[in-house]
Amino acid sequence: MADAAQKPLLAITLGDPAGVGPEVVVRAWSDPRVHEVCRPVALGHPEILRRAVALTGSSARVEVIDSVSTIAQLGLDPSDPFRIPCLPVGSDDVLDAPPAKLDARSGQAAYEAVVLATRRSIAGQFAGLVTAPLSKAALHAAGHHYPGHTELLAELCGVDDFAMMLYLPKSELPDSRAGLGVVHATLHCSLRSVPGQLNPGLIAAKCRLANILMRDGFGLADPRIGVCALNPHAGEEELFGNEENLIISPAVGMARAAGIAAVGPLPADTLLVRARDGEFDAVVAMYHDQGHIALKLLAMHRAVNITLGLPIVRTSAAHGTAFDRAWQGSAEGSGMIAAILAAAELARREFRFVS
C-alpha cells in the first residue's frame, strides 16, 4: 500500500439519506482497492452513516471529525477500512425522515453535503469529490431547484462550460485504450426540446471537454471522438431530419479545426458498438438516453458519472437513489467503488479543467 500522505484525500458525500447512498458508501469503504489509492472522508450526518454500518453488518466504526485537519491531529488514517472519518453536515431533522421515501429533509441534507464538499474541494482541502446519489425531487422539495448534481456543481464552481460524462474504465472494456466516455450535448430536459437546444458551438464545446478529459485525465495523446447523429440513420440524406447537415456536421468541423480528432455525425445505434470495440475513446451523444442506455447496458453497476468543466475532480456512481431497494441491505456497491477509483486516478494526475 502506498504511503498514506501520498494518496489523495477524497470527500465522499452520503447522498440522499433515504436512498441507497449511505449503504453503498459503507460497502465501498470495505473494499481494499479503495484504500490502496486514496484517503476517503465521509460527509453527512454521522448517525445516518452508523445506521448504514449496522445495516450492512460492517465492523467499521464511524469517527466524527470537526475538520479535515482533525484527521492528522487524532492520528486517524482515512485509508483504514475499519474507521470511517465523518465530517458532520446538516441538522438532526433528517434523522426523523423516513427511509426509502421522498422527503424534503433528506433533500436538504443531501444538498448541504454537496455544498460543503464542493467548497472544501475548491479551497484545496480535498483532492476530489465523490457523490452518492441524491433525489432530484427531494432536492426540489427542499427548495433547491436544480435538475441534478451536475447543474448544482457548475453553479457552485462558477462555470458555464460543463458537461456530464458516463465513463467505463478500461477494466470493463478490454479493447479500449483508456476506457470509454460518453458526453451529453443536452442532459436533463424533455426529448421534444432537444433539437431546439442543439447548436454547432454547443456540440463542439462538448467535443472539447471530452478531448481534454481523455487526454489530460486518462493520458491519451490522441483521443478519438465519435459524434452521434440525432436522427435515425443520421437523417438518411434528410429523409428523417436535417439537424445532421445543419447543426452536427458544422460542429464536427469546428472541433476538427481546433485539432480534435472528431468524426460524425454517425448513426447512434452503431457508433456505440464501434466505440465499445475500441474504435473511439469518447462519444458525444445528443441527449440523455441516447448515451445512457447504451453505456448502462454495457455495465450498469460499474459506470461512473464524471462532471466535465469543473475546477475540481468530481465523480459519482451512475445509478440513482433506488428507493425501491434502499435500506434493505441489498444495494450494489460496485458503482460507488468505481467512482472512487476513477476520482483517485484523476486526483493522482492532479487533473483540472482550466479555462
Rank of each mutant, 00 (worst) to 15 (best):
E36P: 01
I122D: 07
F240I: 01
V26C: 10
F126C: 11
G90C: 14
P99K: 05
G107Y: 06
A294N: 08
L198P: 04
R256M: 06
F162V: 02
R274L: 13
L346F: 00
V41Q: 04
A205S: 15
S106E: 04
L156M: 08
T13N: 02
T315E: 00
P174N: 09
D66V: 09
P85H: 06
L220H: 10
Y111C: 13
H35K: 03
A338Y: 09
R33S: 07
E237K: 15
A294C: 05
P40Y: 01
I203W: 00
L187C: 07
A4F: 03
A261K: 07
A268N: 01
T186L: 13
N231P: 12
V227C: 05
E36W: 00
T150W: 13
Y146M: 14
T56R: 15
R276G: 11
L10Y: 05
A338R: 10
A294Q: 09
T56L: 14
V304G: 00
L213G: 12
A138W: 08
D66W: 03
G181W: 06
G219D: 03
S334G: 11
L152P: 12
S59H: 08
P169V: 04
G217C: 12
V263H: 13
K170R: 14
A11I: 02
V24T: 11
L166F: 14
K7T: 02
A104D: 05
L95F: 15
G259A: 02
G278D: 09
A326P: 04
F218M: 06
N211W: 08
P98E: 14
A4N: 04
L239S: 11
L191P: 11
L308W: 05
I225Q: 05
A142G: 10
A109K: 01
V34D: 04
A205H: 00
P250V: 13
H288W: 00
A142Y: 12
P98Y: 10
T186H: 12
